Amino acid sequence: MDRIMTNISVLVSGRGTNLQSVIDAIENGDISGAKIVAVISDKKEAYALTRAKNHNIPGIFADPKSFSSREAYDDCLLDILKENKTDLVLLAGYLRIITGRLTLAYENKMINIHPSLLPAFPGLHAQKQALEYGVKVSGCTVHLVEPALDGGPVILQKTVPVLPGDTEETLAARILIEENKAYPEAVKLFVENKLRINGRNVTILE
């Protein structure tokens, strides 16, 4: 029996390189049984919307300034997600803090990627935080989204060395290469129902 199609919606704010990595993985068949049904941005000029258009994916700009509160905005997003029969929500460079409206509605069905080895260096400027701390290894973390900022259970992580003379920009560029590998890998695991979640522990089935 054919596997049911997984409808994916992606929340974005910027360039959308991780969005592109997932689009490519779906189009080249590495991720099968999944379709991106909507790309939703809080920034009208986000290049991620152009990426969506280039692949005939519906792109939606939802203006936060049109809403009286963060909760009201997330209610709007929730309506869009439901209208598109979304099974999995991806945060791909989405810069707004998400309220419990969304995290509860998509518990264990919302994934984010962060440019550090969580729980180290959550929040903004993770690469700068890593350099200032003096770590020798950094990387990226794909995790489930919970109300706590960058605090959800870890799905997978990839590492990169921190090199002498690294700047925030050079470290970020090296981490981004691994992000573009890790995100499609995590999405594939979700779509293939290979993730088992027990509290904070995520087990990957063979």
Rank of each mutant, 00 (worst) to 15 (best):
G165V: 13
A105L: 04
R174L: 07
V202R: 03
S32E: 14
P122V: 08
P115I: 01
A182G: 01
G199W: 10
A172P: 00
E185K: 15
T17G: 06
F121K: 05
E179A: 05
E27Y: 05
K35Y: 06
A130D: 08
R70N: 11
E146A: 07
R101S: 02
S32H: 08
I31H: 09
P58N: 06
M1H: 12
G16Q: 09
R174H: 10
N193F: 01
G29Q: 10
N193R: 15
R3S: 12
F121T: 01
L81K: 03
R3F: 07
N28Q: 13
Q20V: 07
P122D: 04
P153C: 07
I98S: 04
S138E: 03
H55L: 02
A25D: 01
E178A: 02
G14M: 08
A148W: 07
K128A: 12
E146I: 13
T159L: 13
H55P: 01
T86A: 05
M110A: 06
T203N: 13
L118I: 08
Y73L: 04
P115M: 08
L176K: 13
L90S: 01
L156C: 04
L149R: 09
G199N: 10
G134K: 07
E178M: 14
I97R: 14
G139H: 07
N198H: 11
P184S: 10
N198V: 05
V39H: 06
I155C: 00
V12Q: 03
P122K: 12
L77A: 04
T6V: 15
L205I: 11
L144V: 00
P119R: 12
H55Q: 08
V12P: 00
A172M: 01
